[in-house]
Design a protein around this nucleic acid. Structure first.
Lengths: 235, 235
DNA sequence: ATCGTTTTATTTGTCCTACAAATAGAACGA
DNA sequence: TCGTTCTATTTGTAGGACAAATAAAACGAT
């Protein structure tokens, strides 16, 4: 499992053993793990090593530690790790494109969820957002307005995990617009010329009128610029 | 940010500061961080604390450490953290349903990707998989056959991140079939009675014949049992 | 006897020192 | 100039010490 450039430290090993320990015994949130001293004895390593390993699991939200009480297993927030490493500066273009791809797939894929969860209140909130957005140039909204609209769409879908995932990967779009602006403009112009642009207003309208099938088609069209971005081999 | 039940340890604080340090300076993979001793001095904490924080970032794949060379920033594998905490035993039902939801959304959402990436080779591989699968009861495949088919579908979509995400959340379906089997049977029967079942053979056929629009509809139908599972409030 | 308070023992959080192991870079030599 | 050896630096691991928190036990008053 270990590649030739990484060495497996004792902390790595202890960490893996603890994770296995939890899985193998089918432990559940609320159950306790052995104390640091017991772990030191069973693994035959220094307390430092055990503490490094536990520190990692603690960060991931897999355990909680309290003096005297010991180490308690908790239901982990699933995206803690992703959130911490999500820094577009560190990503190569391929990764950025894959994030775009994920976003397209999710937003197309949640269409059914939206219409299943649709409430008057949510629609009104979406109307508010659409009403307040301003074009900064022709058919071009500010990043913030874009984010606000799409975030609300995810909210309507109602899946907390997907909502969080969207929140975490949002910065990718700010980043892409800042760094690859030129890649979006031509597609937009082309779409406008052929009168194919689907605006937020259009999407809102379809949601309000409960036109599920039309929405599924429309959201795909709306996302075409991103699709072009990830398909463009020359960027 | 700190809730009333969690205390922010020094390691938590140092970890956060290092992450900000990387973001604020716009550091990139290959760049180096200060040495442990320098961090000890700048933060005024013990080496232990610094090491706990770096140990976490190391685990996430954000940095690499080597004697004499110091601490080097790397492009982080995005799903390291999720992979480590992904243990269905620890999840409440709501979380399991959300994972199901994610899977449905993704699999519906990647339809366009599949037809964009479709190659003769991949189609043949999918044919192989479908040819080798065996019914364990009427219209019911083994978990392994299910996995093999859908994993190949994700592979056809070609998005590495989504492929990894699918690999990580796979255990949820094994888990759900083992623990909530009874929730799938009635839906399946109902679908069979109304002759609405879409099999893997049907999906393969649509892919082979390049019938993109039909596939988009078919995959939604194919996933109805899962949809019912997550919509069922009484489970 | 019960309830509230104090004490005690345990456990994690932090600091420190020491040494081993790896290695980048300098010094050296052919 | 190139390959080798040496040196200094840096991370990895060990172990000891004490502080802080707190669960559980002991205690005391009503």
């Amino acid at each position: 499992m270990q590649t030739e450039f990484t060495t497996l430290t004792l902390a790595d090993q202890v960490e893996a053993k603890i994770i296995s320990y939890i899985e193998d015994r089918g432990l559940k949130p609320g159950d306790t793990l052995p104390t640091e001293f017991e772990l030191v004895n069973t693994f035959g390593v220094s307390r430092n090593v055990v503490r490094e390993a536990m520190s990692r699991l603690r960060m991931l939200g897999l355990i909680q530690t309290r003096p005297k009480r010991g180490i308690i297993i908790t239901e982990p927030p699933l995206l803690n790790g992703l959130k911490k490493v999500f820094n577009p500066n560190l990503f190569k273009l391929q990764t950025i494109k894959e994030m775009m791809g994920l976003r397209i797939a999710l937003e197309v894929g949640i269409s059914d969820f939206i219409f299943n969860n649709r409430t008057e209140k949510l629609i009104e909130e979406l109307e508010q957002i659409v009403a307040q957005q301003k074009n900064i140039s022709i058919d071009m909204l500010s990043v913030e307005d874009e984010m606000r609209f799409h975030t609300k769409i995810y909210e309507m879908a109602g899946n907390q995990f997907i909502i969080q995932l969207n929140e975490i990967i949002q910065p990718i779009f700010v980043f892409a617009r800042q760094n690859y602006q030129s890649n979006f403009a031509p597609v937009n112009n082309q779409l406008r010329d052929s009168n194919e642009i689907i605006t937020h207003e259009d999407l809102l309208c379809l949601i309000r009128e409960n036109r599920k099938n039309d929405y599924r088609e429309a959201i795909r069209t709306h996302l075409i610029p991103y699709w072009e971005f990830i398909s463009n081999k020359t960027v």
